[in-house]
Nucleic acid binder design. Structure first.
Length: 890
DNA sequence: GGGTGAACGTA
DNA sequence: CGTACGTTCACCCA
């Protein structure tokens, strides 16, 4: 029986600590004694995160001994441009070494060599012992070490946000293989190492040459064949390039005086760690460190249990040729649950399918969808129409890709992408590689030794095997979160509907768009020339930097609110300046902003119209932490709805030729209703049940006046307060929003909570529970985790608190609409209506209505929308119908 | 060309 | 110093 493979994690200590040092503001990481701790904190946080997510069996941290190495011997200027090590950084490395020693983690150094050479040596050794290797380094030279067995974790935005550099990732980013990367680096140069490259040659050109001539060697052989300025520059700098290549080659055969076994995690000295953490004043990080160290035993047990499960293996992979009996393969091996992968494009407007991989019953099949015999193609068609139980990663994209070859892919029984999203909704990406890495703890190439193939042909089937192995792991995770019903009854059905909506697209009236575009171009030109006249010269009105010069230097206007880079020139600030100065430039500028923004939107919409006269957006099901759907390429969830001109854009979204009208169905105040239900605040529930205007009723309650005496001003104050609260608005924010004093805003808030005390209690409770359990939950059990609540940075904590308090509200609304969307679609299909869903805009569904179906569909939609859940307040729905989206508004 | 910040549209 | 998104532009860097 095969076990989980051992994994060794090797960290370049100096470079990762340095990254942390610059990523974390030292002001927030200083002990009372004045000792800077930002690098220590960032480094340990990064390490703990890796220990948690990757569960390596072996760990080592490599350090440079000094700046001096064999590289500086050859080239004394190596890394010569680096500034003196900052004062605050010194000493932190020693603290890190101290911590590591007491955590039971080996540190490694080698006289005359750099830490990266140690990484290279271990990366060469470990795979020979069947181990997987993770290298954490901020030095791009390590990319040359990447293989199927070796992944480099390279810091992104923050030190703990690591990119997984697999062979695929390196190739995608640089256009060359990991082995060729140092050739590229030699040509391009590395400023941080003081290694100049060929002037005028960037990564693009370098990759081009490498691919054309087959690496640096080939380039040097053909150096005279390269024309142009760049070729000349290359010839002039050959010695630099060759030197760069010598210096960036990592040494992978050092004698390190340790065996792999000595890199296993040793037992920690908790007494010593206690003392260290006390002086560092880390409390939350201490807990995380202890948890991950103490959990080591549990991990072993868990993997022991896992290895008791029947192991999925690959006995044979069939690469389809014209002679292959695909039908026989499918009936032998794909009658049970089958994992399916594909290569191609899953975007609806450019859908395309090339290679397909299947794994079922210990056997793999790979076929090129473009080269099947008609008999094989029919076999696949028949198979898919028999409702096979498929495991897929990202079913919507797969469905589009298969549709491009005329195949109808059934909804998967398990979608690992959606499952990973439900398990951890705050990750920004759910590529197959990342999900495999996170939940299987393996790199993409890291299949079982028994199933390790080196030929690329079999890769789709190997991936399908990984997919099959992923399924029970994710199923288990969702099971413990009780989120399996969310996957099966909400997300997977929703995915199918989203796919249908994407394929349907929405018809555009080009005449309206073109006319609007022309008019807006005119407006922009006029506003531009008015603006130039007002200041007597031209300028780029789209450049905040130039605007700041004009406003605050030339015109000497009072300074506005600060941003990170200067002073804001946003619309609100400009309005304010206009009110104070009345300068005509401001008026023209505001007009220009408005018109050009709209112009850009209209022009980009025109460009998005497909040959069928419709726009096909892409709905993103795994990007919003709260569970909402997002729309992109183009985003149809932010089409203007307020200003008059903006509304004319909505006038361009129309019913298609075969249809009679568009119908908009939306929930009224769904988030407030959810607040009422979840908080069980009787007064708020009463306000809804009064059946009158909600904000009016609430205002009457707060200000203690009869409903018909509520003025528009009072009503809008309460409306703003209500919505603000669901977002965690402060008294300060409320005062700004309403244009009243902070004291007055605070009084309003207090009065509000006097009347609606249950709401305040509920909101506090949500945050308290999030702090306690680490997550919030929607009405349907969708979780969102809030690790930032444990941050030492007050701002970060407060942001997390606001997000936490909003998550169950926004998330429950998202759940309800998902159920309603699926339900509307089901009823439309069961009733064999031609009318169909086109868009989902958070609390609104837009439908295309066939002639004669309007009334029945309205009835059906109303029922479906009201059905998802029984709450203590009714779900109210508003319906509008018209030729265009604008006309369908209500 | 890639990444970031400002600004702004929606719910 | 209000949540959740996506897009655009300018700007800075390499």
């Amino acid at each position: 029986m095969s076990q989980d493979r051992n994994t060794v994690l090797v960290v370049d200590g100096h470079s990762m600590a340095f990254r942390a040092f610059y990523a974390l503001p030292v002001e927030n990481f200083t002990t009372r004694g004045g000792q800077a701790t930002n690098a220590v904190y960032g480094f340990i946080a990064m390490l703990v995160k890796l220990l948690e997510t990757e569960r390596p069996s072996h760990v080592a941290v490599a350090f440079d001994l000094s700046r001096h190495s064999f590289r500086t011997e050859e080239y004394p200027e190596y890394k010569g441009t680096r500034d003196e090590t900052p004062e605050d950084f010194k000493g932190q490395v020693e603290v890190i070494e101290d911590l590591l020693a007491n955590m039971g983690i080996r540190t490694l150094t080698k006289e005359n060599y750099e830490a990266d050479d140690i990484l290279a040596t271990l990366a060469a050794q470990a795979p020979r012992q069947g181990m997987r290797v993770l290298l954490a380094s901020g030095d791009r030279d390590t990319f040359q070490l990447v293989t199927d067995e070796v992944t480099v974790l390279y810091p992104g935005r923050s030190a703990s946000d690591l990119q997984y550099m697999t062979p695929e990732a390196v190739e995608e980013k640089y256009g060359v293989t990991p082995q060729e990367y140092p050739d590229l680096a030699a040509l391009v140069g590395e400023t941080s190492d003081n290694l100049p490259g060929v002037p005028g040659v960037g990564a693009k050109t370098a990759a081009q040459w490498i691919n054309k001539f087959g690496g640096l060697k080939g380039i040097l052989e053909h150096v005279d064949d390269i024309g142009g300025k760049r070729g000349e520059a290359l010839r002039e700098n050959l010695s630099d390039v060759e030197r760069n290549r010598r210096l960036n080659r990592l040494v992978d055969d050092l004698d390190l005086d340790v065996t792999m076994d000595q890199l296993r995690l040793q037992s920690a000295d908790f007494d010593a760690l206690d003392q260290l953490f006390d002086t560092l004043e880390f409390s939350t990080l201490r807990k995380r460190v202890y948890r991950v160290l103490g959990r080591e035993a549990d991990t072993q047990r868990a993997s022991a249990i896992a290895s008791d499960m029947p192991e999925l293996v690959m006995k044979e992979v069939t690469i389809a040729s014209p002679e292959t009996d695909v039908e026989a393969w499918l009936s032998s091996y794909a009658s049970g649950t089958t994992a399916l992968t594909f290569e191609g494009n899953g975007r609806v407007t450019e859908a395309d399918l090339s290679v397909v991989g299947l794994y079922g019953n210990s056997h793999g099949l790979v076929f090129d969808a473009t080269r099947l015999t008609s008999k094989q193609e029919e076999a696949v068609t028949a198979y898919l129409s028999g409702h096979p139980s498929l495991i897929i990663h990202g079913g919507k994209a797969a469905e589009h890709a298969f549709a491009s070859r005329g195949w109808k892919l059934p909804p998967p029984v398990f979608d690992t992408q959606l499952a990973a999203y439900l398990a951890r909704p705050d990750r920004r990406a759910y590529s197959f590689a990342e999900v495999v890495s996170q939940f299987l703890g393996e790199g993409m190439g890291g299949a079982e030794p028994a199933t390790l193939f080196n030929t690329n042909d079999k890769e789709p089937a190997e991936h399908a095997l990984l997919l099959a192995r992923l399924e029970p792991v994710l199923r288990d995770v969702l099971n413990t979160q009780e989120a399996l019903p969310l996957l099966e009854s909400m997300e997977i059905p929703m995915q199918t509907v989203l796919g249908q909506m994407e394929r349907a697209g929405i018809a555009m009236d080009m005449r309206v768009l073109e006319e609007l575009s022309q008019e807006l171009h005119g407006n922009v030109e006029r506003a531009r020339s008015d603006a130039y006249t007002a200041i007597g010269h031209e300028a780029n009105l789209g450049s905040p930097k130039q605007l700041q010069v004009i406003l605050f230097e030339e015109l000497g206007m009072p300074k506005t609110r600060k941003t990170k880079t200067g002073w804001t020139t946003d619309a609100e600030a400009l309005q304010d300046l206009f009110a104070r100065t009345g300068h005509p430039f401001l008026e023209a500028l505001l007009r220009h902003r408005d018109s050009s923004k709209l112009m850009q939107m209209v022009d980009s919409l025109i460009g998005e119209v497909q040959p069928d006269g419709r726009i096909h957006t892409t709905f993103q099901q795994t990007v919003a932490g709260t569970g909402r759907i997002a729309s992109s390429d183009p985003n149809l969830q932010n089409i203007p709805a307020r200003s008059d001109t903006g509304l004319r854009v909505r006038g361009a979204f129309v019913a298609g030729d075969e249809y009679a009208s568009l119908m908009s169905v939306d929930y009224s105040q769904i988030e407030m209703r959810i607040m009422a239900h979840l908080s069980e605040d009787q007064k708020l529930i009463d306000a809804f049940n009064m059946g009158e205007d909600l904000h009016r009723s609430m205002a009457a309650m707060v200000f203690d006046v009869p409903v018909d005496e509520v003025t528009a001003a009072l009503r809008s104050r309460i409306k703003a307060t209500s919505y603000g609260l669901a977002y965690g608005l402060s008294a300060y924010g409320l005062s700004k929003q309403l244009g009243i004093g902070v004291d007055e805003a605070r009084q309003l808030r207090e009065k509000y909570f006097e009347r609606f005390g249950g709401v305040g209690r509920y909101l506090q409770e949500v945050v308290a529970q999030a702090r306690d359990t680490g997550y919030t939950e929607t009405m349907f059990g969708r979780r969102r985790y809030f690790p930032d609540l444990q941050s030492t940075n007050r701002r970060v904590v407060e942001m997390a608190e606001r997000a936490a308090l909003n998550a169950p509200i926004q998330g429950s609304a998202a759940d309800i609409i998902k159920i309603a969307t699926v339900e509307v679609n089901n009823r439309l299909q069961q009733g064999h209506y031609r009318s169909r869903l086109l868009l989902q805009i958070h609390d609104e569904l837009l439908l295309e209505i066939a002639e004669g179906e309007r009334e029945e569909v309205e009835q059906l939609a109303r029922e479906a929308m009201a059905s998802p859940v029984n709450m203590s307040v009714p779900l109210e729905v508003a319906v509008g119908v018209g030729h265009s989206w604008k006309d369908a508004a209500h």
